[in-house]
Structure formats: C-alpha cells, structure tokens
C-alpha cells in the first residue's frame, strides 16, 4: 500500500490547473462554480496525502473544515446564480455587466 508522494503532488497540480482553466475559459457561471469545486477538491487530496505521509491527522481535520466551507460556498454561489437568472434571464457572464454601464 505504498505510493510515492511526488506522484500525488503532480496529480493535484494537474487537477488544480484544470480547475483554473475551467474558471478562465468557461462563460457559464454554474460550470465556473464546478471548476472551483475541482480546485478545492484537489487541495483536499494534497492535504490528505501529506497527512498520511507525516502520520499527522491535523490535515484530515482541515479537510473536514474545507468540505464544510465548500458546501457553504456552493449554497451561496448557486443562490446568487438563481438571483442573477431571475434578473437577467441568462447565466452567461458576458451578459452580466451592470457595473460597467
């Protein structure tokens, strides 16, 4: 049951980069929030890997807190999406430019 930590670090970096790519290139707000979830989860994986590597459970407790914050973030973010859709009838970020005008 032994896995080299360098591979896990590479995996988390790749996943985090894919999440950043999603936030930068997509225009649908829901998919952007999903990409943020991917980024949070890749950091969780890194927390757990180092927690197992150092045999220190503080990292796993931190993952619990990150999960709770991610749930709160998803709830508020999706509520904002619904409010935006009610006012603009669109969830495309290109259509939301009220502060520009």
């Amino acid at each position: 049951m032994e896995i080299e930590i360098i591979r896990i670090i590479f995996l988390t970096v790749v996943l985090f980069s894919i999440g950043i790519l999603g936030v930068l290139t997509r225009r649908n707000i829901i998919v952007m929030i999903m990409s943020v979830e991917i980024m949070l989860n890749s950091v969780n994986l890194l927390f757990i890997a180092f927690s197992r590597y150092f045999q220190d459970l503080n990292g796993e407790v931190m993952v619990l807190f990150v999960m709770a914050i991610a749930a709160a973030e998803a709830a508020v973010g999706l509520a904002i999406v619904i409010a935006l859709h009610r006012n603009y009838h669109s969830i495309d970020i290109m259509d939301i430019k009220a502060l520009k005008e």
Partner: peptide, 27 residues
C-alpha cells in the same frame, strides 16, 4: 487508497449526496 476511509465516506456523503443534488436542482 491512501488510507483515509473516514474522509472517503464523508466525500461521498457530502459531495455526491448533498452538493451535486444542489447543482442539479439549480440546473
């Protein structure tokens, strides 16, 4: 696989069970 069974359970319960349902409801 890394040995964190409790976190694996919580991952399925919280993310797949709660957050994804929220996403699909909004969609």
């Amino acid at each position: 696989l890394l040995g964190a069974e409790f976190m694996a359970t919580l991952q399925v319960l919280v993310y797949v069970g709660a957050i994804m349902v929220l996403f699909l409801f909004v969609i």
